[in-house]
Nucleic acid binder design. Structure first.
Lengths: 165, 165
DNA sequence: TTAAAGCTTCCCATAATGGCAAGGTCAAGG
DNA sequence: CCTTGACCTTGCCATTATGGGAAGCTTTAA
């Protein structure tokens, strides 16, 4: 049993985020000492590591909630996990394509910009009046705020089906 | 001269965002009718189109603010514009690399998952205890919330050096 | 005993966008 | 002249995941 600071250090998840995850119900409420300090077991730390790793792989908290449910379900079908993972990969690929289109368009424009002291600049010219040439599919991101938004996130997570039961 | 709805329609920027851009000082305060309605000229719409296009190319509002300054500066050096564009491209490329690392890791894991009714799943196994194999550089995004965070954004923009002067 | 380090909760901020609500305005039609 | 509907205004709330900071209590080491 350790305090939140230790759990943070061992899991790689900041204390701040651990409290946040508890608050939104991604992890169950930690047991408290008499003074109100949260206490974590190495099992809890294990869960946190899982979460950390999933975050590193770009899963949203919402998706991690689902992953945790599957993780704890001894009768899960690996197909469900795979489907979740692949749908996330699809989201990543879509985002990558979008960013690549932007980068490509910009690089194309930059290639034609002398980049000297003179004011004439095809980059600004294109921003002012887009030429069909560079118009690819960078327009209308359809449903992409700036990224990170792959899942709409229902409301409150309340899965907390993690370790402690 | 047109109302905000028309300007929105012609520029592709929502009325909501036009007000927002005005509020943060990206564009100058619109002139108002006696009743308080904002009015826009086709020149204003032109600025808004510029902004819209820049957003489509992934520039942050902060960066767009700089682009607008350059756009309006007859004595700009195209090198400054190019530098700004290329630094943004670098940010995009970095993000792309990060997402690709995630996607690749996940695809690799998914490849080894049967995806059937059985519970054994290498994806969950890896999330639980990462194996060096898939550990590439997906860890520690260094300074990347979820994306969009390329520029720290000082405080308030207050450039408003756009059209109307 | 005291100081430092750690914990708690609460509030604020981020980037860019949408939604909703209450209320004023304007134009067209009766 | 009045109503209706479309449009405008402001203001507030929500989103995602994360960090910062303050005020106050606890624990620990000296």
């Amino acid at each position: 049993m350790m305090n939140i600071g230790q759990a943070a250090k061992f899991s790689g998840v900041s204390a701040k985020m651990i409290r946040y995850y508890e608050q939104i119900g991604l992890i169950p409420k930690a047991i408290r000492s008499d003074a109100g300090y949260r206490h974590y077991s190495s099992l809890d730390v294990h869960s946190l590591r899982f979460i950390r790793r999933a975050r590193d792989l770009g899963f949203s908290v919402e998706q991690i909630s689902e992953l945790l449910v599957l993780w704890c379900d001894r009768d899960r079908a690996s197909g469900d996990v795979k489907a979740l993972a692949l749908s996330h990969v699809a989201g990543l690929r879509a985002k990558i394509a979008e960013l690549q289109a932007m980068a490509q368009t910009l690089e194309h424009l930059a290639d034609h910009c002398h980049g000297n002291e003179r004011p004439d600049c095809p980059i600004l010219a294109d921003l002012a009046e887009p030429t069909a040439a560079a118009q690819q599919r960078s327009q209308a991101p359809l449903r992409t705020p700036r990224f990170g938004g792959d899942t709409p996130a229902s409301s409150r997570i309340r899965a907390a089906t993690a370790t402690r039961s």
